[in-house]
Write a protein that binds this DNA or RNA. Structure first.
Lengths: 146, 146
DNA sequence: TTTGATGCAAAGACTTTGCATGCTT
DNA sequence: AAGCATGCAAAGTCTTTGCATCAAA
């Protein structure tokens, strides 16, 4: 993503445009590996403070720029995801791996859920839905049975 | 749930039947409030160690007896859920509240998802699904607390 | 008897925060 | 110039672990 567009993304959400924020967002958007804070920090290799990575991701989350996946890392740390389109995750709690379900398969599932049902839930609970998350937990197997 | 049935639940999963485990499981099964470890610990009021609450819930999770909802508490702590039927949660990250979507509405959503689609995902990723989670994030807009 | 469960405190991991400084607006 | 962003280290919170003791199988 070019800087111009990226900066517009920031300003449109009331975030200041800084070099570090561009760096972090780009790093996150460039992968589907759902890095943890520490993985991002390692990757950026001393170019910024660990606290900045935390704070920046927090800002991104609050403004809806990225999604946080709590407790998915190896020791219960959070993973982050810059993909904003609705998509599913396959999570293996044993290994701490989180993998995106391919778009086509994710979309097929999301499309099954009628808007009316979600609206019914909103009404019933007095809740405004920001995001629908469909995550699978289970285990990755080498041999593909089934 | 009577002790006999509860003990069978434990033994069938390879867990020893102890007084503390019965207490914790009952406390969790008796509420839909998705308590945190600390909330359970407070409620049990000195009748057992905090570490035991952690360890016990960990055992329950590993054997599929309860579900962990990471990062849902006020300071990022985990919440726990003894309901094993597929059901949805409405999560408000600002307040840390997690509310069950009523069974009927949850079920309607889950029933929209064809088994074949989940199986296709399993095959595609080499993943064995244990649990499908559909959680809504957003905000509670009324003072309602279902 | 053997193995797992519990209690306690200490250690560990992740995350947030206070404050001084620098940079964006 | 004002206000947010950053760096650093310290503090905070949640969770796990080591080890001795106790209970279930």
């Amino acid at each position: 993503m070019i800087t111009e567009t990226l900066d517009h993304l920031f300003t449109s959400r009331g975030l200041r445009c800084t070099s570090h924020r561009r760096t972090i967002y780009r790093a996150l958007a460039a992968t589907t590996a759902h890095p943890t804070v520490d993985e991002l920090y390692q990757q950026l290799d001393g170019r910024m403070s660990l606290a900045t990575v935390y704070n920046t991701l927090e800002s991104f989350c609050k403004t809806g720029l990225v999604r946080k996946i709590p407790g998915s890392g190896e020791n219960g740390s959070a993973r982050y995801d810059a993909t904003t389109d609705p998509h599913m995750h396959a999570c293996d709690p044993m290994s701490g791996r989180v993998v995106d379900v391919p778009d086509e398969l994710s979309r097929a599932v999301f499309e099954q859920i009628p808007k009316e049902q979600l609206e019914a839930i909103e009404k019933c609970l007095g809740f405004r839905i920001h995001d629908v998350r469909i995550d699978l937990t289970g285990e990755f197997v080498s041999a593909r049975n089934n």
